[in-house]
Amino acid sequence: MGKVTAGYVLDQTGLGHAFQDVEPVRELHTTYQQVRDQIVHQLKTDLASGDFFKYGEYIGEIGSMFIGIGEVKAAVIGTTYGAKLVESIQLASLATK
């Protein structure tokens, strides 16, 4: 069996008439491509500049997609408790000397 195309599926299901006016879809796709190209160009320009502040901004933006504020808060609280624990251990070791 050959490659199944979207047109074939639309014809077989009878939904082809729903997509007769595809001009808005084409315009949306063209706009998407233009915006994507602008973003990629800006990214290349910023990274080629050697500006480490820009690198940090991009790392922060990408990181924020994977790490939410809840994780950051938990890390801060964990660090605070960890620092208090280390301080307590140091005080205990000084008290035993």
Rank of each mutant, 00 (worst) to 15 (best):
L15P: 01
D51Q: 02
I59F: 15
K54I: 03
Q42W: 03
V40G: 00
L10E: 09
L85R: 13
T5I: 08
M65K: 13
S93L: 12
D51L: 01
T96H: 11
T5G: 06
H41S: 15
Y55M: 09
F19D: 01
I39P: 00
A95L: 12
H41E: 15
E57C: 08
T96A: 13
D46C: 01
K73N: 09
D37A: 03
L15W: 13
G68E: 06
I77L: 11
K54M: 07
V40I: 12
V4P: 02
T79M: 07
Q34C: 03
I89R: 11
E27W: 01
D46Q: 11
R26F: 07
V35P: 02
Y58A: 05
Y58Q: 03
G78M: 02
R26W: 05
T31G: 05
G70I: 03
V86G: 02
D46A: 13
T80G: 01
Y81M: 13
V9F: 10
Q38C: 03
L15S: 07
Q90H: 10
I59G: 02
G60Y: 09
F53D: 13
G63D: 03
F52Y: 07
Q38F: 00
Q12V: 06
I89D: 05
T79R: 09
T80Q: 09
V25Y: 15
K97S: 06
Q33S: 08
Q38V: 10
